[in-house]
Design a protein around this nucleic acid. Sequence first.
DNA 1: AGTGCGGCCTGTCCGC
DNA 2: TGCGGACAGGCCGCAC
Length: 271
Amino acid sequence: MPELPEVETTRAGIVPHVVGRRVAQVVVRNRNLRWPIPTTLARQLTGQTVNSIRRRGKYLIIDTEAGHALIHLGMSGSLRIVTADEAVKKHDHVDLVLDDGRALRFHDPRRFGCLLWTRKDPLSHDLLASLGPEPLGVEFSGDYLHQKSRGRRSAVKGFIMDSHIVVGVGNIYASEALFRAGIHPKRAAGRISRQRYQALAHSIVEVLTEAIEQGGTTLRDFVNSEGNPGYFQQTLNVYGRESEACPQCGHAIMNIVLGQRSTYYCAQCQT
DNA sequence: AGTGCGGCCTGTCCGC
DNA sequence: TGCGGACAGGCCGCAC
């Protein structure tokens, strides 16, 4: 579910309520996420003050003196600030109860997300160490994409969705960025010019930035930390718009499956 | 090393 | 109304 803009929206929403607070209690109702929630987490996190909350790719990092909680929202996860009396719903797997009585509540129907604990530098954790650069950071550019793509014969859409190439570009924004850059999603990554990669890098930055400004995309169930949807879906040009008219040329938007993921594009504008 | 899948889960929707 | 199957915003781990 959540791509980078949704994770960033979540982070920004929980920071004012969580940073500076002490974790009074950790309530784990179901530890069977993608990886089991470590039994050490509750013991080591309880009593700790949250110093900061960072994002690396689609991971959230909750920093404390004793260690760091790593959270991934997977396909269907969300984090909300809840009041002490708010009823626990199905799939509310974990509460980090804060010292003001409220709680950070982790909800994840499909349980593709995770909640891990590490005492070392979280950026060197196995899951984070090999991640590619942040698309909104200084290392990311068209030149970088062009250089990394040489010799690759697989489709450019999968290439930009590979978190070891660049983090945070999921299925929706991959289709949207390729549309904006005029690149066909099936084109071999290694056979795209430096100039076109510059357009693509620009489109990725643009689409992610705009999505963050609009609070992310809600197609079915994304909610921010206050339980509200995002508004970027109104801005989507191709995603979910099969058979609709291309906003640029009027040609019908196509929907194909690429790498087991549904992919939307305009056959006229994208080559 | 790069590529292509299977698999992890539940919920929803669609056709019969 | 019920049921089977496809599909859904992610991504690791494995075979080749």
